[in-house]
């Protein structure tokens, strides 16, 4: 455990010693802020319209209208591009500078190294999620959103990002070149993201399987504020798969010069 935390601390420090952490946090905050502005404006305009037309028709809650739109509509796509920036250096940089030799000749197991790196990356990602509360917090000050569905949203976002991080780390074991690791991860994420699109056109067992495998389709329930076991299992499986593939890849790495 001490080894895992030592490596996680080292990774987190590396993010904050380099521009990556600040770049990712800035992009994330800007986009969050922009979306927050757009959706609150729209919500305010809609409520004024409703007041003027009489209060009889059903009206979406703050949760549905603002928070869900932000998370499900756009931020999950932003993450497809931001998370590769976080994962691309995990193994590539160590391979390039030769520090991988230090890690692999230290009395720590491969699993401890992998978990350490994963926890480090996850900590940076958790910082991003925390940043969204800069804006969501305003809703609690000036409105009355429901906290419970929000927790489901955050959990879903965390699991979704966690799966992307594990897969991105796996990609970074293949190359010394961070840019390649980042681009390949992005392409992989995009493909996994659009897998459910065929099922929206034709519905058959094949498109259904594709839809199940899609990274995006499992966030729907979380976005509605529902924690459904199959979705949790899906993301946890993706995380375990990513870590497992990383372990296999690191093992193969040692056979080569």
């Amino acid at each position: 455990m001490r080894n895992v935390m030592a490596i996680a601390g080292k990774e987190l420090r590396a993010y904050f010693h380099s521009p990556i952490a600040y770049l990712v946090m800035t992009v994330w905050s800007l986009l969050c802020g922009y979306l927050f502005y757009v959706y609150t404006q729209a919500y305010a305009a809609a409520s004024i319209r409703r007041e003027m037309s009489g209060a009889s028709m059903p009206f979406p809650t703050i949760n549905d209208f603002i928070i869900r739109s932000m998370l499900q509509g756009f931020l999950m796509v932003v993450l497809l591009f931001l998370i590769p920036l976080i994962t691309m250096r995990l193994y590539s940089e160590e391979k390039k500078t030769g520090t991988i030799e230090l890690l692999l000749t230290s009395p720590v197991s491969d699993l401890q190294i992998i978990l350490g790196k994963y926890v480090g990356a996850l900590a940076l990602y958790a910082t991003l999620i925390a940043l969204t509360f800069l804006y969501l917090g305003l809703l609690f000050i000036y409105g009355n959103p429901d906290a419970k569905p929000l927790l489901a949203n955050v959990l879903g976002l965390f699991l979704y990002g966690g799966a992307l991080l594990a897969l991105g780390m796996w990609i970074s074991t293949f190359t010394k070149n961070q840019i390649i690791a980042g681009v390949v991860a992005m392409v992989l994420f995009l493909i996994l993201f659009v897998l459910n699109w065929p099922s929206q056109i034709t519905f058959n067992p094949f498109t259904q399987v594709l839809s199940y495998l899609s990274l995006g389709s499992h966030l729907d329930n979380f976005a509605k504020g529902v924690i459904d076991l199959p979705d949790v299992v899906y993301y946890l499986s993706a995380i375990v798969l990513g870590l497992f593939l990383t372990a296999r890849s690191v093992d193969a790495l040692k056979g080569r010069p």
């Binding site: 590396a14 500078t97 030799e101 890690l103 720590v108």
Partner: peptide, 30 residues
């Protein structure tokens, strides 16, 4: 590995760390 110290041909250093941070990190994982 616990009983071996190793200096590869290119010292495995993290350029962004200070020497103190680096030694503390290596000490922990060793």
């Amino acid at each position: 590995k616990k009983r071996t110290g190793y200096l590869p041909e290119n010292p495995p250093l993290y350029p962004e760390m200070t020497a103190r941070e680096y030694l503390a990190f290596v000490g922990k994982i060793k």
